[in-house]
């Protein structure tokens, strides 16, 4: 059993009673929750720390009373792409997932035309702006 499997087992066995590994404020918890169970393409270490974040996240969502749905997401996220459809269907093991990222990364790395920087400079100069309707 890997460390991650152990953590998952722990999450499955007692999601409600799991003690948070790091005590954080609600705002921190939310940030951690938002940082995304869906990060894909990560190594073992990352998965383990992600799973730790998941433990915190569980606590947070329990606190928010949105426990049930989130538990499923978290477990699915922590499990990575191993279970077809249940795990991460767009992970690095998925042809669709890889192509999707390749497609998008190509778009993101496209050179940004000058017009946008110029636009922002104009907006800045025009300040205080007339409200547009």
């Amino acid at each position: 059993m890997t460390r991650l499997d152990g953590l998952q087992a722990m999450l499955i066995a007692s999601p409600v009673r799991t003690t948070p590994l790091f005590r954080k404020s609600s705002a921190d918890m939310e940030r951690i929750g938002r940082s995304g169970v869906l990060n894909v393409g990560m190594g073992n270490q990352t998965r383990v720390s992600l799973a730790l974040c998941c433990v915190e996240r569980l606590e947070f969502w329990e606190y928010k009373g949105e426990m049930k749905d989130m538990t499923k997401d978290i477990l699915a996220g922590a499990a990575g792409g191993r279970r077809n459809g249940v795990g991460d269907p767009l992970g690095p093991n998925s042809e669709i997932g890889r192509k999707l990222k390749q497609y998008y990364d190509e778009l993101v790395s496209d050179n940004v035309p000058d017009r946008f920087a110029q636009l922002l400079s104009q907006l800045e100069k025009a300040e205080p702006a007339q409200k547009k309707d």
Binding site: V40, G81, G85, D88, E95
Partner: peptide, 29 residues
């Protein structure tokens, strides 16, 4: 929506069941 999109893409591109046969995510890395 994500799930339907993925299924539809697989249909269009004629990819099927890749997850079941490929290496798992960690060994793929």
């Amino acid at each position: 929506r994500v799930s339907r999109a993925r299924t539809r893409l697989q249909e269009i591109l004629k990819i099927s069941g890749e997850d079941e046969y490929g290496p798992d995510a960690i060994s793929a890395q």
